[in-house]
Each structure stands twice: as C-alpha cells, then as structure tokens.
C-alpha cells in the first residue's frame, strides 16, 4: 500500500485536525502520567512519550461498561440494549506492543464460537495508528521475546516511523487508507523505506531484556503442582496493579446496579489477583490463596492462551514489571520456570 512522508512537527496538528471530525484517543500528559485520553479542545497530544502509564485497552474494553438497562414497570420488565453504539474513532500514536495486544484480544473477544459485540463494535469502528519505537522506551521492554518488534505494523492500520527528519507513514489496511487525506501529499521514496528498515533492525537489536517465553509452555504443561509455585506470591500485596496496567489482561465481572425500579447491568475489569475473583456463591474459592492466583496469572499468559489461541498473552511492554509495588518481575518468573 501507499507510503508517505510528513514533517515531524506536523504530527500533533494532524491528530488535532482529526479530532475535529472523529473521536480521537491520543497520549495526553496528566500531571506526572501519560495516559490515553480523548483529544479535546482543552488538551494537547503528547507524542514525546516513552509509553503510556496504563495500556490503551480501555478504548475497546473499558474499565466499566454498560451492557444493558432495565426498568420494572406495572406491565413487566422493559429491557434496553446498549451495544453497538460505538462512534467512529481513531487511536492515535500507540506503541507497537500495545497494537499487538489488540491482535491478541481479538482472538478472545472476536472468535468463531463467541463474539463479544461490545468489544467488536468499538474495535471495528476504530482506526489504530501505531507510533514505532525507534529506540526502546524502557530497559525493561522485552517485546522481541513475545513475538513483537519495536518497529512493527502488527495490529495497526497505519504505522508511523520516525526516520530522522520526517515520519514515514505506511498505510497498512484499507481502514487506515481512508484517513490518507490527513497525511499530506508527499510520497515516500525508496530512500525513506531503506532508512526505516535500517532503523527497525537497530531498534530490534536494542531490546536487551530477553526471556525464554516460548520455552516454558511444555514445562508449564507438566508442572501444575510443582513446589516452585510456593516461591512467587509471598510478597504479593494482592492488589490489581499488574492486571489493570496489562494490555492483554481481560478478565471481567458482571454486576447489576439497581436504584428503585431502574437497573443497569455493567461489566467491569476484574483481576485474578483479587481474593473475590473466582469466589463461589457457597463461599468456597478454588483459588484460595495468592499462590493459586499467581499460578493462574502465569498459566493464563504462557500456557492456557497458547493452548486456546496458539499465542502468548503477553506483549513485553514491561508495565507490570515497572508498576508492581513490590517488584514481582514476570521476567524472572519465566526465567525461573524455564529452569524447572
């Protein structure tokens, strides 16, 4: 597909111009955090960021989402569906690891057996514009160990790569091409492409943190009861930081909030780290302690997801590594498992 060049300082202007017509999500600086937020008149996009504090999964899979509403009337219950109300949107400037997470989430929310209309409607109406990492944002980044690359179009409709003086704009899908008019007229030549390929190789080499993520699946297959699982969770606080920051964690809870005769059914993020997670009505919890919860988190990412979808449910963004209040490092866990 077509490739173009834009001047580097033009990026914010393009995002803002898009925001006039479309619902644009972009990295925005809020105090000390960079977060993906709707671009409005009163905020500026911030593209000089390493990576956003939390993953942009909330664009497709919000923390809290109304599934339906209901009202009790003298003639019985009246239900109203809330799905398929997504506006046309653009997710502007996500890092390739996060774009990769959308491909992984699609496997679950948009599969043959089960189609999650809430997720799909937002996903289909959103164009993803990736901003390649020309240098690794953090020394704890390990995308290359989990099928990712710092300069990758995986999961993106448009890929932007900083090639020095300009951004190379690559339209990856026809959905991306529909936004071509925003990106000027300058066609990219082969020189720009060669430059980009060189940058991509360099960026890949610069990822120094590596984990044997692909080696541990057969080990996990056989080691559900290994005493190793006693060694991770001791210091775990059982907070939900790792799962809430994670681009691929997708467990949710469904609850009804009722006020008088009106009720709202919402789904909201849940976390396998919470004591309430998988607690049954009887009071019994098959995952009774943090040990079982940590085994679940590790197994889900590196075994169950591979069993189900032939893909590791981790993109190597390192958010859980950096955000964990007590420094439980998934890289070390994977490393340790590989030695079992």
């Amino acid at each position: 597909m077509e490739k173009r060049l834009i001047k580097k300082d033009a990026l914010a202007g393009i995002a803002k111009k898009m925001a006039e017509k479309l619902h644009v999500w972009a990295p925005v600086k809020k105090e000390d955090n960079v977060l993906f937020a709707p671009l409005k008149k009163d905020n500026e996009p911030f593209f000089a960021y390493l990576n956003s504090k939390n993953a942009p999964k909330n664009v497709f899979f919000p923390h809290t989402e109304t599934m339906m509403k209901y009202t009790r009337t003298p003639n019985g219950m009246v239900f109203s569906s809330e799905e398929n109300k997504a506006d046309e949107a653009v997710l502007f400037g996500v890092r390739p690891c996060d774009a990769h997470s959308f491909v992984l989430l699609d496997k679950l929310f948009d599969q043959e057996k089960y189609k999650d209309s809430y997720y799909i409607s937002k996903r289909q109406n959103t164009t993803v514009i990736s901003l390649a990492c020309v240098k690794p944002p953090y020394s704890s980044c390990f995308c290359t160990s989990v099928d990712g690359e710092p300069v990758s179009a995986d999961g993106a409709d448009i890929l932007l790569t900083d090639i020095g003086s300009d951004y190379l704009v690559e339209f990856i899908t026809s959905k991306g091409e529909k936004l071509a008019s925003y990106f000027g007229e300058t066609k990219a030549d082969t020189v720009a492409e060669t430059k980009k390929n060189e940058i991509a190789v360099k960026a890949k080499d610069a990822i120094k943190s590596k984990i044997p993520a692909h080696e541990i699946k057969p080990i996990l297959d056989k080691n559900f009861d290994n005493p190793f699982w006693n060694t991770i969770h001791g210091k775990c606080l059982a907070c939900g930081t790792c799962t809430y920051m994670c681009p691929t964690c997708h467990c949710f809870d469904i609850s009804d909030e009722v006020k008088g005769s009106d009720g709202v059914r919402i789904r909201s993020w849940d976390s396998c780290m919470f004591p309430l997670f998988t607690k049954e009505t009887s009071g019994h919890n098959p995952r009774s302690s943090q040990k079982e919860r940590w085994r679940q988190r590790t197994m889900h990412k590196f075994k169950y997801y591979v069993d189900m979808f032939n893909a590791i449910a981790c993109v190597g963004c390192g958010r859980c590594v950096m955000s964990c209040p007590v420094n439980i490092d998934i890289r070390k866990i994977v490393e340790d498992i590989s030695k079992l």
Partner: peptide
C-alpha cells in the same frame, strides 16, 4: 486518578 486497584489498601 484512582483506578480502584486497591494497592493502597493492600
């Protein structure tokens, strides 16, 4: 700013 991860409580 709070995302209700409950890290503070924990």
């Amino acid at each position: 700013k709070c995302i209700r991860c409950y890290a503070c409580r924990q």
